[in-house]
């Protein structure tokens, strides 16, 4: 039992922090620009492919720097020539614009790298088992992911709350006119924010690429879970995103460990024979079986009982 709890906690935290790494850029863009970037997972995919291409030429470490910068620049161009144009048509238009972008980026990636998975590997310098708990190896690369996620969280928090740039950016969201009058270029601030957010997605891509499968459908497969993270956490709240990521990671991991179904709960009574007929399929479904769907159930529950999300500050 102790083994299950310890191993599940560790796995849950590692997975949760990976989720946070992927979702952090989405939260940054939303909290500062009010735009939910549906193409976030696509930029994450771009990051993974750029990371793959650069690391096989120059190595993993240069890729970790160069790929996010490149993707960030692409993101800034997208903001400057696309998003800014549709901004005046409102949030629905912005959402739809980023939705259209997902198709274009996926097709572009397929054109360059094909449709099959590419062989993107963990760098040799991090390819060893860091420690072993109950004969389960924990690879060093997973710890590296954990460290990067924590570092990004702290850096973002400090930047937003403690620096001048953070203050200006926050002010630009609520009072763009006033910030503009104070001599700051609001458009450029938004462009930078979008670039940074998208760059964060790319960092996640470079790092998650070797752990997961780097393939042209990776964006579509990952997509929805990130939105669950930011909505459950409270749209725009960085701390909320962290809590939600960990929560989802732990819930999902612990759920896998339990093979309990309704049938087990009711045992063999007369009532259960009746219920079995009426509930049919649901009757024998175990919690473990639906573990990966739990985040979506969580999403619906949170929105019913706490519409602003766990740590959200406003109702949008």
């Amino acid at each position: 039992m102790l083994e299950i709890i310890l191993v599940s906690t560790l796995n849950g935290v590692l997975y949760g922090m990976l989720l946070f790494l992927m979702a952090s850029g989405l939260t940054v863009i939303f909290s500062m620009m009010g735009v939910l970037n549906l193409a976030h997972a696509s930029f994450y995919m771009l990051g993974a492919f750029f990371g793959f291409e650069i690391s096989r030429r120059l190595g993993f470490w240069p890729a970790l720097i160069i790929a996010p910068v490149l993707v960030g620049l692409i993101g800034m161009a997208v903001e400057r020539y696309g998003l800014r144009r549709v901004h005046k048509h409102g949030h629905v238009a912005e959402l739809l614009f980023t939705f259209g972008l997902t198709f274009v980026i996926t097709e572009m990636v397929e054109m360059f790298w094909g449709k099959l998975p590419v062989d993107y590997r963990v760098p040799p310098s991090l390819d060893f088992a860091a420690f072993t708990v109950f004969s389960v190896n924990y690879p060093a690369f997973r710890l590296f992911v954990l460290l990067i996620s924590v570092a990004i969280f702290i850096a973002l928090l400090l930047t937003i709350k403690r620096t001048r740039i953070g203050l200006i950016v926050q002010a630009a969201l609520t009072h763009p006119g006033m910030v503009g009058m104070l001599g700051h270029n609001v458009d450029r601030i938004f462009m930078l924010v979008f670039g940074v957010g998208v760059g964060l997605a790319a960092i996640a891509g470079v790092i998650a690429g070797p752990i997961l499968i780097t393939q042209s459908n990776m964006a579509a497969l990952l997509g929805p879970i990130l939105f669950v993270v930011v909505v459950v956490g409270g749209l725009g709240s960085l701390g909320g995103a962290l809590v939600a990521s960990l929560l989802i990671g732990l819930v999902q991991t612990f759920a896998v460990a339990f093979n309990v179904s309704l049938a087990d709960l009711f045992g063999t009574s007369q009532l259960s024979a009746v219920l079995e007929v009426w509930l049919a399929d649901i009757w024998r479904v175990t919690i473990a079986q639906i573990a990966p769907i739990m985040p979506y159930i969580l999403l619906v529950l949170v929105l019913i009982f706490r519409p602003r999300g766990l740590m959200g500050t406003r109702d949008t």
């Binding site: 299950i4 796995n11 590692l14 389960v136 879970i225 991991t253």
Partner: peptide
């Protein structure tokens, strides 16, 4: 995305 719990 994460099969670690299943492997455990």
């Amino acid at each position: 995305t994460d099969f670690a719990p299943y492997v455990a």
